[in-house]
Amino acid sequence: MIDRLKKAPFIMVTAFSYFIIYFPIFVIVLLSVNASPSGQTFTEFSFVWYKEIFLNERLLTAIFNTLLVAVISTAVATVVGTLTAIGINSLTKTYRIRFMILNNVPVINPDIVTGLSLMLVFSLLPISFGMPTMLLAHIFFSIPFVVLTVLPKLKELDPNLMDAALDLGCNYFEGVVKVIIPSIKTAIIAGALIAFTMSIDDFVISYFTTGNGFQNVSIWIYSRLGRRTFSPAVYAYNTLVVFLTIGVLGYINVNNIIRVKRRSEK
């Protein structure tokens, strides 16, 4: 598409965007190995903040809470989202579109609107604010992403696939479990990955729906901004998360490239 245009300006703009996106992450990495607690200047190279992750009890609890909420909400959202997507896919087009409009409300809505909406609903329910409300909120905003990831894959499937399963003796439950779900496995994994990411990274919705001192990492950070209790150990934690992500995604990517290569050699 671009061959005859001059490539250079495109490469420059692209390089610039990667720079502006990655620059703060680079700074976080730098701050994580900087001995200075204020992070104002670089004093000395040190891994002290990495050790501090395991010593700062409040931070450790926040990390644990983040992971706990992420794991449970991802599991629930993946199951519910997948089954819902299968249901939506079998609706007529008009109803499917209407359903998707509703599904996309939490996706398009700014976090602050989702957050305050859920806060208002939860205030009417007989549950106390904290872990349960935050978990419900995370399930709420994760499901739409699973549906959005799984639905296009379902649409690609042969529309007779379920009928073929029934034809060969499956009942409806077996048809879904033995045929439909295995056929969309990759999309389900991708949806779960997105749900997990959204949960780990969320600040605004968690902030509006938590209570009684239940903190995830984001709330831990926000409540300590500009205070002495803010510990640069969180930079170290964040650096580990980013490198872990790069590792996992890199592994998937390299695997894909190898698979593509092997296929083309065959």
């Binding site: 499937l157 042969d158 007779n160 696939l161 009928d163 073929a164 295995p182 056929s183």
Partner: peptide, 9 residues
């Protein structure tokens, strides 16, 4: 079936 509906997995 039309287009066969073979199970892709």
């Amino acid at each position: 079936f039309q287009n066969y509906a073979l199970f892709p997995h």
